[in-house]
């Protein structure tokens, strides 16, 4: 696999326009353990940022900080260029940050519409407005080009893994998310299901939604991402348009925190 030359990045650091989400010196300490150490990252709108790193590199800690589950110990976050504090999931939700966790948080005994509106059901005269919810859900799925589900009144328990992922993403999008964070969206999926989810991620990007994808699968990353961010032992060792990376360099960065052709003085001694 050679360098993916296509550079779709437009709003990277130093590029035109301010990023949707900006992280400056984000740190998170658990006692003496520094799970995140001064992470700087820009997440532009309409682009797919792949967050990669080995186990324990701090990927989950970083997305939990962004989605308000763990308040960071230090550093600041900007949203649309303005500083914000995201200390609760509710605050993240109000900004338009939606996180799709690996377990998807779906109820198997409810149908697609009911899951997409769970906790935010539309009412008319105090009762569930099923018709309006069904129409909205259908429209959202159609906008995301999710065509594989037979009926939106199917129980989610009867869906395939890719379809479930689609429902979870559609739920986030329908609620007006501007940044969708996906944790290992393709981890448990087969080949065609993976393609389905990757298409969905691309659709999100083309709609101007910022996407952060955590993935261990470099095939997926190079297929779908516009930008790459590599974490190594709690530090962001490299980030930039995907065109600046090839597979070998990405692997080096993930495993050693540096790459041969581009030694970063700040990361030559990761243990220090």
């Amino acid at each position: 696999m050679s360098i993916v030359a296509e550079d779709r990045a437009t709003g990277g650091p130093g590029g035109p326009g301010s990023p949707l989400l900006g992280l400056r010196g984000i740190s998170k300490h658990f006692g003496a353990v520094r799970a995140l150490n001064h992470v700087d990252l820009d997440v532009p709108a309409g682009q797919i940022t792949a967050l990669v790193g080995d186990n324990g590199a701090g990927k989950s800690t970083l997305i939990k900080a962004v989605s308000g589950i763990w308040a960071p110990t230090g550093g600041e976050m900007t949203w649309d260029g303005a500083p914000v504090e995201v200390n609760t999931p509710k605050a993240a939700d109000q900004l338009g940050i939606a996180t799709v966790y690996q377990d998807l948080a779906l109820c198997d005994n409810l149908d697609i519409v009911q899951n997409m509106f769970l906790g935010h059901e539309e009412l008319s005269h105090g009762l569930l407005d099923e018709t309006r919810m069904e129409l909205t859900a259908k429209q959202t799925l159609a906008d995301l080009s999710v065509t594989t589900v037979q009926s939106v009144r199917q129980l989610v328990g009867s869906l395939s893994g890719g379809q479930r992922q689609s429902v979870a993403v559609a739920r986030a999008v329908m609620r007006d998310a501007r940044l969708v964070i996906m944790d290992e969206p393709t981890a448990a999926l087969g080949v065609s299901q993976t393609a389905q989810v990757l298409d969905l991620i691309k659709t999100l990007g083309s709609k101007g939604i910022a996407v952060i994808v955590i993935s261990h699968n470099l095939n997926d990353v190079f297929e779908v991402a516009d930008r790459l961010a590599v974490l190594y032992l709690g530090r962001l060792v490299s980030s930039g348009p995907i065109a600046e990376y090839d597979r070998q360099r990405a692997v080096e960065l993930i495993t050693t925190g540096r790459s041969g052709d581009d030694p970063d003085p700040g990361t030559t001694d990761p243990k220090g």
């Binding site: 609760t88 509710k90 939700d93 109000q94 429209q139 101007g208």
Partner: peptide, 23 residues
């Protein structure tokens, strides 16, 4: 109640971003 990532925020009737409210 501890709202998760999809926590409580008033459901808007129109769905911007996706124009999904247009039926």
């Amino acid at each position: 109640e501890q709202s998760g990532p999809g926590g409580a925020h008033p459901m808007s009737t129109d769905i911007p971003g996706t124009a999904s409210a247009e039926v």
